[in-house]
């Protein structure tokens, strides 16, 4: 787990300020940026994965039952998935945290 930036002492940095904890950006939850939230209507969803493929934030996950849903920890609410869903089964609602 990477420490918060302002708690890091110089001795904690790796040589050359490299970062060997790959993929550690996932500790930063971009979901807090969101003002809109995508909501899937599972009754219409054909489980095609198009929304997943187009999400710039890798914020759509496939669940056990094969449906694709936004991971709200990372979803920034751009609306691309809703726009690109071939059956139009994703609606966008105003986020209330």
């Amino acid at each position: 787990m990477a420490r918060p930036m302002d708690e890091i002492r110089w001795q904690d940095l790796e040589i050359g300020a490299a970062v060997s904890e790959h993929g550690s950006s996932s500790e930063y939850k971009t979901g807090t940026w969101r003002s809109l939230r995508p909501v899937v209507d599972k009754d219409q969803c054909i489980r095609c994965g198009v929304c997943w493929l187009y999400c710039p934030d890798v914020a759509i996950k496939q669940s056990e039952d094969g449906y694709f849903e936004a991971d709200l920890e990372y979803c920034k609410g751009c609306g691309i998935c809703a726009r690109e869903c071939p059956v139009g089964c994703i609606s966008v609602v105003i986020e209330e945290f």
Binding site: M5, D6, I8, R9, W10, D12, L13, I15, A17
Partner: peptide
């Protein structure tokens, strides 16, 4: 927040 620490190394 972290640039100075990097320079110190």
């Amino acid at each position: 927040e972290i640039y100075s620490e990097a320079q110190m190394t």
